[in-house]
């Protein structure tokens, strides 16, 4: 991700496609939810171990909130009308402080995902790994990719 000054900044966003056996899942980590103005969805708690295989992975995995950035997107007007661009970037440290500056104005921030539940997942996963209970398996099935004729449609951003 490149900011307005052309400097590379840490991108904190990302979408992950996963599969799993619903019947083995705990309702603590899979909750049917409803967001006002959005609709029905699933809130998923998932923990992913990151193997530190080289220095590059170590550098990215060690990035702090101050180094991770997210674009500020106008969901009121720009996003639904397919207008590309954003209102600038803010760090996760700023977002978690409860207040960010957008076009010189203070704007209140609120999270939508649970930090305390995320910490709980991370510590559970850490416990499994430390006890040697977390084992890698062969992939059950590979996810479709562009090679399978799968095309993704997205909004073009500036």
């Amino acid at each position: 991700m490149i900011n307005v000054e052309g400097k590379e900044i840490g991108s904190a966003g990302g979408t992950l496609a996963v599969t799993g056996d619903l019947k083995q899942m705990s309702p603590r980590w899979l909750i049917g939810t409803s967001y006002l103005g959005y609709g029905a969805t699933l809130s998923v708690g998932i923990g992913i171990p990151i193997p530190i295989l080289n220095e590059e992975i170590a550098r990215y995995a060690a990035m702090k909130d101050e180094e991770l950035f997210a674009p500020v997107v106008d969901y009121g007007e720009a996003y639904p009308s397919f207008t590309p661009g954003n209102l600038g970037y803010v760090s996760y440290a700023e977002l978690k402080s409860g207040k960010i500056k957008v076009n010189g104005k203070d704007v209140i921030t609120a999270p939508l995902s649970s930090m305390s539940r995320a910490r709980e997942i991370a510590s559970t996963l850490k416990g499994w790994i430390q006890k040697g209970e977390f084992q890698l398996t062969e992939p059950v099935k590979t996810l479709p990719s562009p090679a399978d004729g799968f095309t993704a449609h997205s909004i073009k951003e500036a």
Binding site: I31, Y35, S43, I108, A110, P111, S114, M115
Partner: peptide, 9 residues
């Protein structure tokens, strides 16, 4: 689940 969505409103 302590997500915090309510704190903004």
């Amino acid at each position: 689940v302590m997500c915090g969505a309510c704190t903004g409103i």
